[in-house]
Simulated assay, not measured.
Amino acid sequence: MYGASIAFHLASDPDFDGRVTVIERDPTYAFAATSHTNSCIRQQFSDPLNVQISQYGAEYILNFRARSGLADAPDLRLHSFGYLYLADTPDFAAALRDSQQVQAGLGAATRHMTRDQIAEAYPFYALDDIVAGNHNTVNEGYFDGGTLFDWWKRGAKRLGVTFVHDEVVDVIQEADRVTGVRLASGEIIACCWLVNAAGTRAAQVAGMAGIALPVEARKRYTYVFQAETPLDRDLPLTIDPSGVHVRSDGRYYMAGSPPGDDPAVDPADFAFDHALWQDKVWPAIATRIPAFERVRVINEWVGHYDYNTLDQNAVVGPNPDIANFIHVNGFSGHGLQQSPAIGRGMAEWIVHGAYRTLDLTPLGYARIAAGRPIVEKAII
């Protein structure tokens, strides 16, 4: 997603006079995080910059043809069933209230709801243990991330971007700059800028340049299921206190969860834990929504987060010690929804030497080097 987004935004900038090459180790994308995403977007963050990044993403999705300049591109729809965070303790409810105030101050339509208000809007929930919740049904929900990715890639190719099937095995440096990369094929490609968009392999690529990056692959499981008794209205993307989330998916439903034990895994490890549904996911959703006591799983898969172990927030922008090494790493599950704003921001930095719209500096590598985490309370 990020290789395509940044390539397209760069090539679309009228002030850009360079050439862009995207090196892709797996052009089938069979095991890319982009291919295993749930394609959702939300404004419900506690950090103002994360809210603004997703607000731009929603606006970009809703106005994709005009924003991209791709006259033959399809319209993208944003299915705004919203996210519903459920709090089961007073402290959690207070944190949701604080986040709602941040979001509302930036123009988001998030509502802080009492248990009774949630029950009135969605009577199918069992809420005996719930204190409060936050919900937003404006520009928050599901979008077709696969189509967005495909058209960025198509648009980039039309604008002269080259996509190469190979793999970077070494980063070539002179003093404090990257001058090129060596590929597995033996070819050396010179560069003025190197963008690390390697997803779960980002730490490996950064390490080739002597950069320590706290990003690792973590498994995340998705299940699509059919309910014997469907709900009578759209199901918001419900974040249960158990850590399981579930939402409408057309005439079906989609649930997701981290594993019970959440270690780092090899980026090539997509082995499936078939016990997780029975042991954790189904009990949680059936307890929260009794109508889901009788369901049938019709599809399931495991994907990866490129998990930032410091603070589960993106690391973006130039490296302080190697100024032409650009990070777009560690999105920890926020990657697709943040890709329009981050693609635009990286293109601004490379072409103009500064962020011209959103200031993405707080997400820079400097906080990683200092061990200074961003406090983001709304992590899924």
Rank of each mutant, 00 (worst) to 15 (best):
L276Q: 05
V316Y: 10
P48I: 11
G145P: 03
P263E: 11
E24N: 05
R154G: 02
M346I: 15
G303V: 01
W301N: 08
H352Q: 12
R372S: 11
P241I: 13
D166Y: 07
G243T: 09
Y252P: 00
Y142G: 08
A209P: 02
T287N: 12
R19V: 05
A58K: 01
I118A: 08
P258C: 11
N136D: 15
R115L: 11
P263W: 08
F272Q: 08
E187V: 13
Q173R: 15
D170G: 10
K280D: 03
H274D: 14
G364M: 01
P214T: 12
D17P: 00
Y253R: 04
L70P: 01
I342K: 01
P267G: 14
N196G: 07
P283W: 13
N139K: 15
W151N: 04
L183Q: 07
Y122Q: 09
I374Y: 01
F272M: 13
T137F: 06
A284K: 09
L127S: 13
A73R: 08
Y122W: 15
A271N: 08
D128H: 14
A370Q: 07
S99H: 06
Y365P: 06
D262E: 11
F292H: 04
A71K: 12
F270G: 04
L70G: 05
S248R: 04
A197E: 00
H165L: 05
R182I: 07
P290T: 10
V171Q: 05
S242M: 05
G69H: 11
Y56R: 14
L237V: 03
D240Y: 05
F92P: 00
A286P: 03
A126D: 14
T89G: 13
L96F: 11
G155L: 12
I189S: 07
S242R: 05
R154Q: 09
D116W: 09
R154S: 07
Y365C: 10
H165I: 00
R251N: 11
T34I: 06
D249E: 15
L336Y: 04
I53W: 06
T309L: 10
I189E: 02
S257I: 06
P318C: 13
N38P: 00
R111H: 04
D261E: 14
Q278S: 15
W152V: 03
A341F: 02
V168E: 09
D144S: 14
A93K: 01
F163L: 10
I342F: 12
D26L: 09
A108F: 02
D262F: 11
L231D: 01
Q204P: 00
L96A: 07
T110W: 05
F8L: 07
D359T: 13
C192V: 02
P214E: 09
W151I: 01
V138A: 14
D15L: 12
V281G: 06
R177F: 11
E228L: 04
D359Q: 12
Q338Y: 06
S339L: 07
G210K: 11
R177E: 12
P340D: 11
A255R: 04
Y355K: 07
P14V: 08
A347G: 10
G330M: 03
V161S: 03
R158I: 03
P320M: 11
H334W: 03
R25C: 01
D321C: 08
Y355W: 13
H245R: 06
L237F: 06
A347F: 06
V297C: 06
A203M: 02
Q100R: 09
P90N: 14
G146A: 14
Q312T: 04
S248A: 15
